[in-house]
Design a protein around this nucleic acid. Sequence first.
DNA 1: CTATAATCGAGACGGTACGTCCTGTCTTATT
DNA 2: AATAAGACAGGACGTACCGTCTCGATTATAG
Lengths: 214, 214, 214, 214
Amino acid sequence: MAPTTQQPAEPAAPTRGKGRPRSAAADLAILEATRQALAELGWGGLTMGDVATRAGVAKTTLYRRWPSKNELVVDAMAILFDQLEVADMGSLQADVEAVVAQFADLLSRPETQAALLALFAEGSRDPQLRRRIQEQIVEPQKVLVQQGRANAQARGEMVPDEDEHAACEEIDIIFDTIAGTVEHRLLVSGRPVTQEWIHRFATLLLNAFPGTTC
Amino acid sequence: MAPTTQQPAEPAAPTRGKGRPRSAAADLAILEATRQALAELGWGGLTMGDVATRAGVAKTTLYRRWPSKNELVVDAMAILFDQLEVADMGSLQADVEAVVAQFADLLSRPETQAALLALFAEGSRDPQLRRRIQEQIVEPQKVLVQQGRANAQARGEMVPDEDEHAACEEIDIIFDTIAGTVEHRLLVSGRPVTQEWIHRFATLLLNAFPGTTC
Amino acid sequence: MAPTTQQPAEPAAPTRGKGRPRSAAADLAILEATRQALAELGWGGLTMGDVATRAGVAKTTLYRRWPSKNELVVDAMAILFDQLEVADMGSLQADVEAVVAQFADLLSRPETQAALLALFAEGSRDPQLRRRIQEQIVEPQKVLVQQGRANAQARGEMVPDEDEHAACEEIDIIFDTIAGTVEHRLLVSGRPVTQEWIHRFATLLLNAFPGTTC
Amino acid sequence: MAPTTQQPAEPAAPTRGKGRPRSAAADLAILEATRQALAELGWGGLTMGDVATRAGVAKTTLYRRWPSKNELVVDAMAILFDQLEVADMGSLQADVEAVVAQFADLLSRPETQAALLALFAEGSRDPQLRRRIQEQIVEPQKVLVQQGRANAQARGEMVPDEDEHAACEEIDIIFDTIAGTVEHRLLVSGRPVTQEWIHRFATLLLNAFPGTTC
DNA sequence: CTATAATCGAGACGGTACGTCCTGTCTTATT
DNA sequence: AATAAGACAGGACGTACCGTCTCGATTATAG
C-alpha cells in the first residue's frame, strides 16, 4: 500500500540507510496532487511535471518513488478504495444496498472517473500493472463481498459454504456482477445511480441467488 | 456510421462537393490500420503518424476526417460492434448464452481489449466523445437486448410489456448488467469467459427476472 | 518578360491552340497579389496559397504559369525594375544622382526590401533562377549605367571608349559599386539614403574615375 | 558573441544557475553542424531537425538556445566574421587590398553564400534580428575600416580626423561601398573577385578620397 | 451544333518541417 | 543519501505549406 516502489528490499530491511531519509510529507503531497490533477485535467491531461509542481516537489522525487504515471495513479486511487467498508445493516438486502451506494459514490468522484477505466485499460497490456491494480484496488472491493457473505451466513440468511472452490467461484461472479454493472451504468452509460436504482438492482441480485433463505 | 466527421452538414446535403472527392479507399485503409495498430501496440502505443504510415496515407488525410485519436478509434471499433447479432436459438436461455458468447469473443480480441476501456475512460471527460461512443458502440449492443426480449415475448417466454417506461428501465438494467459483468470479468479481473461460466451467468440472469414464465 | 514559363515553345508558335485560352487578367492579378503579399508578409510569410487567394485564383492556375515561388517573385519584381529610367539631366553628376535616387526609392518599397536580397540568396544556389534574375532584374539596372555613360560621352564629359573589353569591365565595376553600395546602405546597414548622402556618394564616384574631363 | 540568447540577464548575473548547466560542447557542435548544413544544403534546405541530428542533439536543445533559424545562423556565421583582421601591410593601398581579399575569401565559402544575403533579407523585416546581425556580423567588418584608417593616419598617409561626426559619416560610406560592392560582385553578379579586380577596385577607392596624401 | 480540348475553381492528396509538449534520465549544488 | 532545479535525448503532437492530383464546370476552336 505504501509507495514502497524502487527500494532495495523493504520487508527484510527497515533500512536505516546512511543518507538523508525520504520525506514522508512528499509522498502525501504527491498523492494528493495526483488526485487533484486527475480531477481537474483527467487521465490524458495528467503529467508528471504538473503533479510535481502541484506537490511542490522536483520531478526526480517522483520518479525515485514510482516508476511511471500508472503506478503513481494506482497508489493515489488505492487510498480512496481503502475507505470502502461493509457495515452490518441487519439484512443482506440492506448490506448490498449500502455497499453499492458506497461504490457508486466513489465512482462519482471526478478523479475516479478519470482514472479507473484508464488504469484498467493500461492494465490489460501490462501484467505487472494489472497485478498492482488487483492488489490495491480490486481486492479491497472483493473483500467487501466476502465480508457481506460471511455476515449473511452468520445471520442465517445464507446457507454456509460447503465447497470452498464453488464458494470462491460464486464470490467471483457476484463481485464481477456488482462492480461491472455499477461501473457500466455510471461510466459507460453515463446514467445516475439513484436510491431507487440501487434498490431494484439489489433485489434482482438477491433473486438471482437461490441460496438465500429469505 | 460512416467517418463523416468534419463535414458541413451531410444529411441534408446532396451537395455535389466541388473539389476532388475524398477517397473512400483511404477511409477503409485507415480504419483497418487503426485496428491493426491497436492490436499490436495497444492504446498507449497508438500513434496517428503510425496509423497514417500503415494505411499508406498522409497524416493530414487522417486529421481531415477525424479530429483526434479518440474519434478515429470509435469509428474503427464500431465496425466490429456492428457485426453483433442476436440469433433466435429457440429459448431465452440459449439466446442469452449465444449473445454473451459473441460479446465475450469480441472482448477477447486484442484490439478491443486495447481500445474499449480506454475509450470509455476518455468518454467520461468529453461529452461529445461519449455521445459518439453511445451511438456507435453502445447502442448496437443494447439493441441486442431489446431484440432478444422481443423474441422471448414472441415465443411466450416473457409476458409482453405493459408499461413502456418500465420496460425501458428494465432493458437498461439488464444491459448494464450483461455488458458490465462480462467486461469486468474479462478486462478487469482478467479471467476467461468459458462455456461453463456463460451458462452459470445466464442462469443467474434468468433467475433474477421473475417476469419469465419458465 | 511575360510570364511565359511552362509553355510549349512560344516564340516559334503563336500557338492558336484549341482549348480555352489562359486568362490574361489572372496573370496581372497574380503578380499584383504577389507584390501585395510580399509587402505585407515578407518573403518568409509569402505562400502560394495566399497569393492565389488574394488574386481570386486557384493554386493550379499559379503553378500552370510559374514553377515555384522564386520565379513568380522574379516576374512580380521585374515589373518594378522595368520602370527605371535614365533621364539626361545635363551633367554626369546630376545623372548619377538622379539614377541613385530612383534606385534608392525602389529599394525603399516594402516589397522590394522583402524580395530582393531573398531572391539573390536563392539565386546563389539555383543557376537557372540566377539567370532569370540577371535577365529580368539586374540587366535593366546595368543598362542604366551604359546609357548614362553614353550620354556623358555624347556631352563630352567622358572620353569615348577605345577598348571594348576594358569598357565592359569598367561598366561592371561601376555598376557593382553603385548597386552594391546603395543596397548595403539601405538593406544591410539600414540607414536612409538622403539627398545629401546621394550627393556625397556621387561625388566620390566621379572622383574615382579619372577618365572624366571635368 | 556567445549563444546567450534566452537567458535571464547574463552580464549582471554571476548567477550560479541552479539546475544542470548547459552543455558548452553542444553549443559548438550545433554551430558547426549549422555551418556544415548550410554549405551542403543552402539556406532553404537548412532544417532545425537536421541540424540537431548532425550535432547529435535533441531539437529542444536547439530551441532552448535560439528562438529560430535566423538567430542560430547569425551566431553560426559570426564566428567566421570574427576571424577578419586588418594587418598593417605598410601602405593604405596594400591594406585595402588585403582586407578586400580576406572579405572576398569569406564570401566565397559556400556557407557564407548560402546564409549572408538570406540573413540580410530576413533582417529587413525583423528589427531584433537586424540588431543582432549588426552587432555580430556587420560591426566586426566596420571595425576593420576604422582600424585601417587609424593605421593610415599613423603612417601619415591620411590627415587626422578633425570633425568627429564627419569622420564617422565617412567611415560609414567607405564601409558600405567596400562591403556592398564586393557582395554585389560575388553574390549578385556572380563574377569572381580576382587579384586584378581587387587592385582596380582599391585604386578607384583611393582615388575617390582626396584626403589621402599620396 | 457538336465534338474536342485546354482552362478554370475547388479541394483532397502524400509529404516534409515546424515549434511545442511530455517522458524519463542526467548532472549540478544544496541540505 | 535525498532534494530542487533544470538541461538533456527522444518522440508524438497537430498545423501549415508544398506541389500534384482529380473532380465538375467553363470557354474557346475545329469539324
